[in-house]
Simulated assay, not measured.
Amino acid sequence: MLKPCACEPFAPTHAEIEELALLVLGPDMQAAHTYMQRVKRRGLSLHVLFTELLEPAARHLGRMWDEDRCDFLDVTLGVARLQELLAVFNDTHSIPAMGDMRRVVTLTAPGEQHRFGLAVVEKFMRAAGWHVRSEAGASLETVIKAVHAEWFAVAGISLSCDSRLDVIEDTIKAIRQHSCNPSITIMVGGAAFKDAPHHAKTVGADGAADSAATAVLLAQKLLDQSLTRRAYSVA
């Protein structure tokens, strides 16, 4: 007699990813909420919803911008709405002062010369409602003073060359050690991580973003996780 198998829920298809991207560009945000509810009812975890639907949808919006199929205002609005969907389904959207907690410090690794990509990330973050303090090109001592004096939920670090991973690892350790927010989370990006996201774990970061659009969602995900951990520790 054949035993019934527990099949994995179907992951979102490419067509469904594109459909969500178009919904968050449209005038009816409730349609996007309803769509997410329908997909979630398949039994997908929030992690899968993030990695297989929300993040790819943000990446698709970024490609639409690159291909001049939508303008900067459209794509940043769409990414901001994806961020809100993530907060809703992580159940952090109703936390008082959520907007005030969206604070990120961005920096380049010491000695890093490539800053254009980080500048684009900063524009996307601001458009999505984040308070951004840019320390691009600043010394590690300056960054340490900044995170010690001011509360940030997330630090975002850009690196273009994977031969300097040891430098960014030391930077991350220093930020965690001196931050006035003991729960600060770290995301990394840049060419060093684009095709090798596993390097994020190597350097001690909490995650890697491969584009400006996905950086917004990753920052929200890290903030949500931090808030969830805090809630459990207080309970």
Score class of each variant (00 low, 15 high):
residue 36 M to I: 12
residue 80 A to T: 14
residue 60 H to Y: 15
residue 216 V to S: 01
residue 84 E to G: 08
residue 231 A to I: 05
residue 91 D to K: 15
residue 8 E to R: 14
residue 75 V to L: 03
residue 74 D to W: 00
residue 86 L to G: 04
residue 17 I to C: 05
residue 153 A to C: 09
residue 151 W to R: 15
residue 158 S to Q: 05
residue 59 R to Y: 12
residue 130 W to C: 00
residue 192 A to E: 07
residue 138 A to N: 01
residue 159 L to N: 01
residue 103 R to V: 04
residue 49 L to A: 10
residue 71 D to M: 06
residue 57 A to Y: 10
residue 11 A to D: 12
residue 235 A to V: 12
residue 155 A to V: 03
residue 67 E to M: 13
residue 183 S to N: 14
residue 180 C to L: 12
residue 102 R to P: 00
residue 33 H to M: 08
residue 204 G to Q: 06
residue 177 Q to P: 07
residue 134 S to V: 08
residue 48 V to L: 13
residue 211 S to Q: 04
residue 195 D to C: 10
residue 104 V to R: 01
residue 73 L to F: 13
residue 102 R to Y: 01
residue 27 P to N: 06
residue 158 S to D: 03
residue 180 C to V: 12
residue 132 V to K: 03
residue 51 T to L: 15
residue 144 I to T: 07
residue 42 R to S: 09
residue 226 S to C: 14
residue 102 R to G: 01
residue 190 G to I: 05
residue 32 A to D: 02
residue 171 T to E: 07
residue 169 E to M: 13
residue 106 T to F: 04
residue 162 D to Q: 10
residue 22 L to G: 03
residue 187 M to C: 14
residue 196 A to I: 11
residue 154 V to P: 00
residue 135 E to Y: 10
residue 24 V to D: 00
residue 32 A to N: 03
residue 10 F to V: 08
residue 210 D to V: 13
residue 69 R to I: 05
residue 152 F to V: 00
residue 64 M to P: 00
residue 13 T to D: 08
residue 129 G to D: 04
residue 141 E to L: 07
residue 39 V to S: 03
residue 28 D to N: 12
residue 166 D to G: 10
residue 11 A to Y: 09
residue 14 H to Q: 12
residue 134 S to W: 05
residue 186 I to R: 00
residue 235 A to D: 15
residue 177 Q to L: 11
residue 64 M to H: 11
residue 65 W to G: 08
residue 110 P to C: 07
